[in-house]
Design a protein around this nucleic acid. Structure first.
Lengths: 361, 361
DNA sequence: TTGTATGCGTTATCAC
DNA sequence: GTGATAACGCATACAA
């Protein structure tokens, strides 16, 4: 209201109210020790003067900040965007701000992002799809609670879900997801599946392995694997051409983004989707639902993952112990990109949407 | 490296190096006044001890923080996501962190978000699609530089582009965009356009007005207007049904999100897109390119808008004057959702790759 | 070239 | 109940 030249602090309010700064601090903090009359007077004066607390000062004296750090490769990716939304919401609910840092999938950028967050003395850091070595990550953030979501860096020990590794990791249940997918494809009469993904990331590797294992369990023929180069449709043009040649009847993709681009590339190649080649994705991003054909995919609870990160971080901050790694449950969302294969008996499921769920320890 | 019990500060390094804190501070800041030898020794010691500067303390003494605030309705929206990415990148380039706050299109949430940013004493605030009254916004952030991107709140004065309003605003050039669209539609032989949007926002209103004006300039018949209720396909089902009834040959949509959902709804209604109803979007989000048919749309330079916000904010911070409002240029991206209308001569538009494929029911 | 001292705005620990 | 005061970690004007 009244635009004052100098910023209004506790001292300003104290002077105006004729009390000490400590009293103002207590009154504004809701300390029951202060008299009801003074408290009311001070509070009224504070709002009137437009007092706004200074978090920097507060952080300094409290030795702990009211912000959490979130590093993500790219907010533009819908899946990451949803995680960010969930993280942001839950953080706000618990009185925390969010400092967002993009890693861009680049080690150097991620490093400086983490350093920055460490400098902010944030109450915790969640890192999505980090390419850095987990060991280096814990080193960078020092003693700040951290949680890794589907890290892409080198895996320190291949004991997923069992022994407690030094750094807590959240991962979708790729095994279960791919089992759902393969069971669904068998049920719908598909016989020649192939897999489409890129190279490099740990998640890429794990997901492919999960698919291969599921295919083995169902005694399906060993699928072809196609590696896309770079993101976008152009990288998938070559893949589409080879799929057309090899005659796969369904392409299981690393994620929805790949799946949607593959659809586009396949059509460009003259193939009809899903009549000639069916498609399966992973993530269930919002656009999977309005693509044409609507995409059958494995749904990850993206926003929930974001929320869970906040809870883990805050719990870890108060307990002092690092959180435990978790496997996040997934569901199969059946849509129109995997119709029943003609000439095969399909399971007597008439509806087009069905969700199965399975929880994992 | 060496996990110390107490956090390592300037004092820690100073004690270890046998110099004063001020010397360490200067050495680490790259002050040429300190001796080369001491500087090197101090710097080595700092990294060895794992010293990380404390931004809270730095902010407190500098009276200005090295963070910028960004409030957005929802990061999940691809357009906003891209703006966030650009903002984030440019901020990092200039040594700033980004505090992200979701407004969720709710006045109360936005209010507390802005209050939070004010408490952080950020160096500037960019607000995307804020529903709050601009007057209240400037009041909330006090003397912090601010820029509004396509605000949805009540417009204080209808003098777009001319007189300097109190708060700087960035807006896409809806007029130009819609002129491009209508010219393109006329050229392709469309005669019965309609407009699909929602109610409420200022941007909604301005965009519709821009479209109506462009239609008038081209002497096209006055278009039907359909208002969708809520987001998503369900809200557009009724619209699709009425479009089928009324017989429009092209639907110009408020944004790509609406356009993509409308495509889905129209197909659900049994209409073929784009053969029976063509579609035009606005924004050019990444998925516009891989939708089927690929979406003709007006491209906004989303990431550039984000970057520009940072520059405006920082310039405003140093100059002390608020930035000037700007109109952001847009381009028409012609894809497959607006093919030449059969039976009409279409202008010999060359250079646009267009791919016509048969529709699969 | 380096050290000393002060203050940034808050909270917390004392005394009154 | 309330007031004075000491930190918190850092940058800087000033002294040496």
């Amino acid at each position: 209201m009244t635009p004052s030249e100098r910023p209004v602090t506790l001292a300003t309010v104290a002077a105006e109210a004729g009390v000490a700064v400590s009293t103002v601090s207590r009154a504004l903090a809701g300390d029951p020790q202060v008299g009801a009359a003074t408290a009311a007077r001070v509070r009224a004066l504070a709002t009137e003067l437009g007092y706004v607390p200074n978090v920097a000062a507060r952080t300094l004296v409290n030795q702990r900040s009211s912000s959490l750090g979130l590093v993500t490769p790219d907010v533009t990716d819908p899946f990451h965007g949803q995680v960010v939304t969930g993280f942001q919401q839950r953080a706000a609910e618990r009185g925390y701000s969010v400092i967002l840092a993009n890693g861009l999938g680049d080690a150097a950028v991620e490093r400086s992002a983490l350093r920055e967050l460490a400098a902010h003395r944030v109450g915790g850091v969640a890192a999505l799809g980090c390419v850095l070595d987990p060991a280096e990550i814990v080193d960078l953030v020092a003693r700040i609670p951290i949680v890794l979501v589907a890290p892409e860096g080198p895996t320190p020990s291949r004991t997923p879900g069992r022994g407690r590794s030094a750094v807590p990791v959240l991962r979708p249940d790729d095994r279960a997801g791919m089992r759902f997918v393969v069971a669904h494809l068998v049920d719908r009469g598909y016989r020649r599946p192939c897999y489409v993904g890129a190279l490099g990331g740990a998640t890429q590797q794990l997901r492919w392995e999960a698919f291969a294992a599921a295919v083995g369990e169902q005694l399906m023929p060993v699928p072809m694997v196609y590696r896309s180069e770079g993101r976008g449709t152009q990288g998938l043009a070559a893949v589409a051409a080879r799929i057309a040649q090899d005659g796969a009847d369904v392409a299981v993709c690393y994620d929805d983004h790949t799946a949607l681009h593959l659809m586009d590339a396949l059509r460009h190649e003259g193939l009809r989707v899903p009549e000639e080649v069916a498609i399966v994705g992973f993530d269930d991003i919002p656009f999977a639902r309005i693509a044409w054909p609507r995409l059958t995919t494995v749904a990850q609870p993206a926003e929930d993952i974001g929320r869970r990160c906040v809870d883990l971080l805050l719990a870890s901050g108060t307990s002092g112990r690092p959180a435990r790694s978790q496997v996040v449950g997934v569901e199969l969302t059946v849509r129109d990109s995997t119709p029943p294969r003609p000439g095969r008996r399909s399971g007597a499921v008439s509806g087009d949407r069905r969700e199965r769920r399975r929880t994992v320890p």
